[in-house]
Design a protein around this nucleic acid. Structure first.
Lengths: 228, 228
DNA sequence: AGCTCCTTTACAGAACCTTTACATGACATT
DNA sequence: AATGTCATGTAAAGGTTCTGTAAAGGAGCT
């Protein structure tokens, strides 16, 4: 099966060039010439990895990435003018998987894409299902709802995200920095108690069992207790 | 707790510099000055990611990577002289996760390391639980818990780290300076009794057998006794 | 305005790491 | 063996950091 790349780049010439090369290397290529289209295509879920130019005519690439990260973990490689160190660091912090300076060597681009895809393929074993169960909880991803014994929990958008991440990793500890990045889409800064508050509220809504479903792992993060 | 980096770099000065910076950024740092030591440490399973210089005095870094890849999927970031494009491509093809040209900006190194670790942490949600056994002890890495005869030990974060390191080296002596660096993430200074205290507490929690499980090797360090 | 939701502030309490202090034990030298 | 020195064991105190949560603030929407 071929890997599907989404190329978001406003320079027609460069985009065509890369598209051709990637095709030749066995990728299925989709193209977008601006941020809006790119975002729409990326969210359409029909690609495996995104190559995203930072400099775009409409929305800034970093903005696109931020938006993307608030909804998915789709791998993203940033593309931008050489030497712009600030963009680079910010890009990683917003959640990019890699960064390549322009003009880039196509072979290197392919090598980097494959390095990331390889990593993803190794680790990713189970596909996301529309409906998943964790004990008495049931996620309906389409409706962004979580049911407890068939009764819908009244969660806010953020609470849903957090609980969904915790459930996806049920039984394992999710670090606060990761939880922040994955559910809130931003970096955990010092003295930011937002996450703690959401956890506190979530615990209330999940009801009080004998032992808390969301366990605190001091100094690290939280973990959803797997029921036996 | 902290992410653990293995730094394989023969230039003492650069290695020290990076080690210090990474420590400051919340990483626990392990160091190796040549390929042989690096390989041994990496295979020892006690780090989350490897920063590997290609130019090494004994084994070529690429060779180390190849060897490593034949056994694990541990994330590896290559480090080498700028502009050496062949190495770069080959590196990716052998299975590197990223590549950074020297001299590198430490901030960028950290950003890249975190980008990879983020992705790995996310994808590993479905990973098969790695369980390690040492006599009646069992480590569950996901929970960061250690069980003794199926009963979870109530360890603090630091105690977990220390015991985990000792177990990983079960049967051989771990120097106090190494234990400090690996488990506490900082250098052992004179008159610092922190480690001794943790060991003391650990021994209490491990229960009193006839002979202590954690043996003292005077003037050197500690060693977890292998059960027969 | 009113409502919802996210975030910040503030404080209390808990968990934990580190330091201090003294006791004990090991090793070397006499 | 006796002595001195240094490493180690551990109780207790100290202080720092982390966490839980109520309450207030603020942003966005209707």
């Amino acid at each position: 099966m071929q890997n599907r790349v989404l190329l978001v780049e406003d320079d027609d010439e460069l985009r065509e060039l890369l598209a051709r090369y990637l095709s030749g290397q066995g990728f299925t290529v989709r193209e977008a010439a601006n941020g809006k289209d790119g975002l729409a295509l990326a969210l359409g879920q029909h690609c495996d990895i995104v190559v995203l130019d930072i400099m775009l005519p409409d929305i800034n690439g970093l903005e696109v990435l931020r938006e993307l990260r608030s909804q998915t973990h789709l791998p993203v490689v940033l593309l931008t003018a050489r030497g712009d160190e600030t963009d680079r660091i910010v890009g990683f912090e917003v959640g990019a998987d890699d960064y390549i300076p322009k003009p880039c060597n196509p072979r290197e681009l392919v090598a980097r894409l494959q390095a990331i895809l390889r990593r993803v393929a190794w680790d990713q074993k189970s596909e996301v299902k529309a409906e998943q169960r964790y004990g008495d909880l049931r996620i309906e991803a389409d409706h962004r709802r979580i049911y407890q014994n068939d009764e819908a929990l009244d969660l806010t958008a953020t609470e849903y995200e957090i609980l969904q991440v915790l459930l996806a990793h049920a039984g394992s500890v999710v670090r606060k920095t990761d939880l922040m990045q994955w559910a809130l889409g931003r970096r955990l800064e010092a003295f930011d108690r937002t996450l703690d508050m959401h956890i506190s509220n979530l615990r209330k809504k999940l009801g009080s069992d004998d032992s808390p479903r969301i366990e605190t792992v001091r100094g690290l993060g939280y973990s959803y207790r797997v029921s036996e």
